[in-house]
Design a protein around this nucleic acid. Structure first.
Length: 464
RNA sequence: GGCCAUGUGGCGGAGUGGUUACGCGCCGGUCUGCAAAACCGUUUAUUCGGGUUCGAUUCCCGACGUGGCCUCCA
């Protein structure tokens, strides 16, 4: 079965053919670690985790290399460091900010059921030439200058966009249009408005590295070119990230990497996930609907957030709502119940088929509903197939009992008290005192408990 | 202004040039002391206006709505 992926660069869905089936290479732009990640940041992490899992399924778990960088040099980080740790030396303050934020990010995405990438390089480890000879930013910039694609001006090193014939191919921008529509005041030292910074000078209050161009720090785009080349080579298979990164970030990565290496492509497939709104509104701190992953994890299991994210195709916008989360939670409650800790089995072909069509996760979920019905009605083999499919996708990470207990714990309800009330109700029913039994049922409902009568007795669960 | 996405039933959300998506909800049934849960079943849609076609939700053009990028924001 062929995996087909939509490529932003060629604007078409193509059969995926890796450069080397023994080492399939994927790069995704990771977080800038200056603040808690919000739910929008979680989308690419989850989407490309599904892709990672698919590639591992197809080519083998040891045949896929997934790199997701951590951006730990950025002016927003500097601002945060000065604000939060005014007493400390800058470098120490920056390290505190980046380490705390990176650790939080790691905890967040673990809870979302995402596998760790093969490598998670930090930008600051790739600024200067390295003992191990892996690609670094300074060397890359030197190569760009040597090949006539970059120039020094005004204390900066800039990329010369006019030196690249097809600059702008990814975002569909032409240099002439950019120039005509440029609203931003052009820095006098730039040869062309779209030329962008590779290296800039640092003041004493800013982090800096000694380079051939003096003490300074790298521009935003060059880090990804360096780290991608360091782990994946000059040309690799798939590059992913959010839609907003197409321009300028990915456009400029392409320019840097291709011009530095003299190649015709940086990655063969460019994939971009859509944006997310919260309750129908743009997420922003001012409107108060800025939601961090961490906050959501206080109210919902990570798998609920994961399922909720996958209900929509990765390329479409998502409206993130509490109603949607409630629906996802209900679905997972049911799936945990039906899968009943079944072990063994293989993922269903139809799940693989759905994902093979450009990660059609809504279709995949429809398939899972079908598998669920077979599992509920069928034998252990059907249950195994259902459970294995869920596990392959990053669900069912805990036992059904733990899943149920977590919900009860979160509600703060006293299980012994509930059991006592249910015993009273059972006794009342045995005496045909239905007035009393209904009264107890109402009391339980008021506590947020739903009861289920069956031949084998009465069970209860937390109503959401 | 330029570029790029997107618009499906009460809600979420796919596929498809002609026939059931799927889930939630609603409604009906079985079960139940009555309910709930579970199971079975029913229901409702393709933003608008043109065009191509025997036939369009699906292809083309336009309008309108929504979102993104064009300022180191996933």
């Amino acid at each position: 079965m062929d995996l087909r992926l939509y490529d932003t660069l060629t604007k078409e869905k193509r059969v995926f053919a890796p450069i080397d089936a023994d080492n399939v290479r994927l790069y995704v732009c990771g977080p800038t670690v200056y603040d808690f990640a919000h739910i929008g940041n979680a989308r690419p992490v989850i989407v490309f985790d599904v892709l990672f899992r698919m590639l591992r399924y197809i080519y083998g778990p040891d045949q896929v290399t997934y790199v997701r960088n951590i951006t730990d040099v950025d002016d927003k980080i500097n601002d945060r460091a000065l604000r939060d740790f005014p007493g400390l030396p800058l470098n120490e303050a920056i390290r505190k900010v980046t380490e705390a934020t990176a650790n939080q990010f790691q905890a967040d995405v673990d809870a979302l059921g995402c596998l760790p990438p093969t490598h998670q390089p930090r930008a600051t480890d790739f600024v200067l030439p390295r003992p191990d000879g892996k690609t670094d930013m300074v060397t890359l910039i030197q190569q760009l200058i040597a090949r006539g694609h970059a120039y020094e001006a005004g204390g900066e090193v800039l990329f010369d966009t006019q030196s690249m014939a097809d600059y702008g191919a990814l975002s569909g921008r032409k240099l002439e249009e950019q120039q005509a529509g440029a609203r931003v005041a052009v820095d006098a030292h730039k040869k062309h408005p779209t030329d962008f910074v590779l290296w800039k000078q640092s003041s004493a209050e800013e982090p800096g590295w000694e380079s051939p161009w003096g003490r300074g720090r790298p521009g935003w785009h060059i880090e990804c070119s360096a780290m991608a080349a360091a782990y994946l080579g000059e040309t690799f298979d798939i590059h992913g990230g959010g839609l907003d990164l197409i321009f300028p970030h990915h456009e400029n990565e392409i320019a840097q990497s291709r011009c530095a290496h003299g190649t015709h492509a940086m990655a063969n497939y460019w994939m971009h996930n859509g944006f997310l709104q919260v309750e129908g509104e743009k997420m922003s701190k001012s409107t108060g609907n800025f939601v961090t992953i961490r906050e959501l994890l206080n109210d919902w299991p990570g798998e609920v957030l994961r399922l909720n994210m996958l209900k929509t195709h990765y390329h479409s916008p998502i409206d993130w709502t509490v109603k949607g989360l409630e629906e996802s939670a209900k679905t997972l409650d049911d799936w945990y119940w039906v899968a009943a800790d079944s072990k063994g089995g293989h993922p269903a072909n139809k799940v693989i088929e759905a994902l093979s069509d450009d990660l059609n996760t809504p279709q995949m979920i429809a398939v899972l509903h079908g598998l669920r019905n077979n599992a509920a009605a069928g034998d252990e083999k059907e249950r195994g197939k259902f459970a294995a499919s869920l596990r392959m996708l990053g669900f069912l990470s805990e036992s059904a009992a733990d899943w149920a207990a977590r919900k009860q714990q979160a509600s703060g309800i006293d299980a012994a008290k509930i059991d006592g009330l249910i015993a009273d109700r059972t006794a009342a029913r045995a005496n045909k005192d239905f007035k009393e039994s209904d009264r107890i049922r109402d009391e339980l409902a008021a506590l947020g408990v739903t009861i289920k009568d069956s031949k084998d007795g009465t069970t209860w669960e937390i109503a959401r």
